[in-house]
Design a protein around this nucleic acid. Structure first.
Lengths: 129, 129
DNA sequence: ATTCGTGCAAATTATTTGCACCACA
DNA sequence: TGTGGTGCAAATAATTTGCACGAAT
């Protein structure tokens, strides 16, 4: 088995991710963590984010051609604003479970489900008027 | 209003997309269409695919850091195999509509919803044994 | 003493864009 | 004839990787 070392960089990355409700991309995480660890590089951030995602510690989603990260690994829905690109959580804890339970097809065995709503957030809606 | 010209390249791209049930990426579309139009370039394929997606003629989804295209624009679910990366359609026409109808939150107005199942396809499951 | 993770730089990969030219409306 | 679309090449942008060194087990 591969050994695992907990480093300050990984800890800080995880701390930052847990502290925000946004769904930052690697670059954003990098800038934030750099304040604490000026020597950190973007490559290290990417490596850690990917490792954490593989281990199921965080989740990785993709929007507009970039990866976004989320410390909340529970099954939950996302809302993406077509205008500002922001991502919001939407909580209907039962929904994903219900969807998974109702899945019927012999060609595929789902282990997880992602529900993404596309639309416009209230903020942008107001601006558009 | 902006004028629109139907070109052979766009037509062939749309034809190809409509003829397959896979969800090809730009490169794949490029290789396929190149057989009919040897002079076509990847840039043209990208431009057309994006234009078609903007116009709602096709849909654009992203998997593993790449964009995939689908001539079927109806609301329908996708299944992505974590092992081979293939995408399958899963049809429960009522599901997306039902989910949208049940949406309640004042912070966001959804116009569309995407349901993606992650798991393992039958083919990969057999191989793994 | 080993081995893993980091920092740095270079390499990949996917996608976009500027520009001159051709072709359709 | 004017304008949008194409092909070509170069530019971006995001992400990954090779390598040598420092650090943790």
């Amino acid at each position: 088995m591969v050994q695992k070392r907990k480093t300050i960089q990984m800890q800080k990355i995880l701390d930052y991710l847990s502290s925000v409700k946004t769904h930052p991309k690697a670059e954003t995480v990098y800038k934030a963590v750099k304040k604490d660890i000026p020597s950190i590089t973007l490559a290290t951030v990417y490596r850690n984010l990917n490792k954490l995602a593989e281990d199921g510690m965080i989740s990785k989603l993709e929007v507009n051609g970039e990866f976004r990260f989320d410390a909340d690994c529970s099954l939950h829905e996302h809302c993406i604003c077509k205008n500002c690109g922001e991502i919001f959580e939407y909580l209907d804890k039962k929904l994903p479970k219900k969807i998974l339970k109702n899945f019927k097809s012999k060609k595929f065995s789902p282990t997880s489900v992602n529900v993404i709503f596309y639309g416009v957030c209230t903020k942008c809606k107001k601006k558009m008027k």
